[in-house]
Design a protein around this nucleic acid. Structure first.
Length: 105
DNA sequence: AATTTGACGACCG
DNA sequence: TCGGTCGCCAAAT
């Protein structure tokens, strides 16, 4: 894990628009190397400087250990919530694709 | 060098 | 939805 990877991950996270989220795996894919766990590793150490609450688990649960804080930020940005998790079908960052799931409660 | 540990993820029952 | 299993990848023991 070099500094370059850290920089890349943090930049990727900074590119997540308010009101949307990305999974650890998504970030890893954007960065182009490493995996979800590596992203998690970086966030755990250096995530304080960016919008860490916009990075959630693939199943929509917010960051382990900081759920309270995360929900504050997320709901303040209007991120749609389903029960105790983010509604990924709606809030997940789209990579320019078109065929995306629709929202039906 | 071997094993355990994570801000994880896909699958299955 | 809820748990358990297995795969993953790098770092820390």
């Amino acid at each position: 894990m070099d500094e370059q990877f850290v920089e890349d991950v943090l930049s990727a996270v900074e590119r997540i628009p308010p009101g949307q989220v990305a999974s650890y795996g998504d970030v890893a894919e954007l960065v182009g190397r490493g995996g979800p766990r590596q992203v998690g590793q970086v966030m755990s150490r250096h995530g304080g400087a960016v919008a860490w609450w916009r990075v959630v688990r693939a199943d929509g649960r917010p960051v382990r250990g900081l759920e309270g804080e995360a929900w504050e930020k997320l709901s303040a940005e209007g991120v749609p919530k389903r029960g105790d998790r983010v509604d990924m079908a709606v809030a997940r960052m789209r990579g320019g694709g078109f065929g995306e799931a629709r929202y039906e409660p």
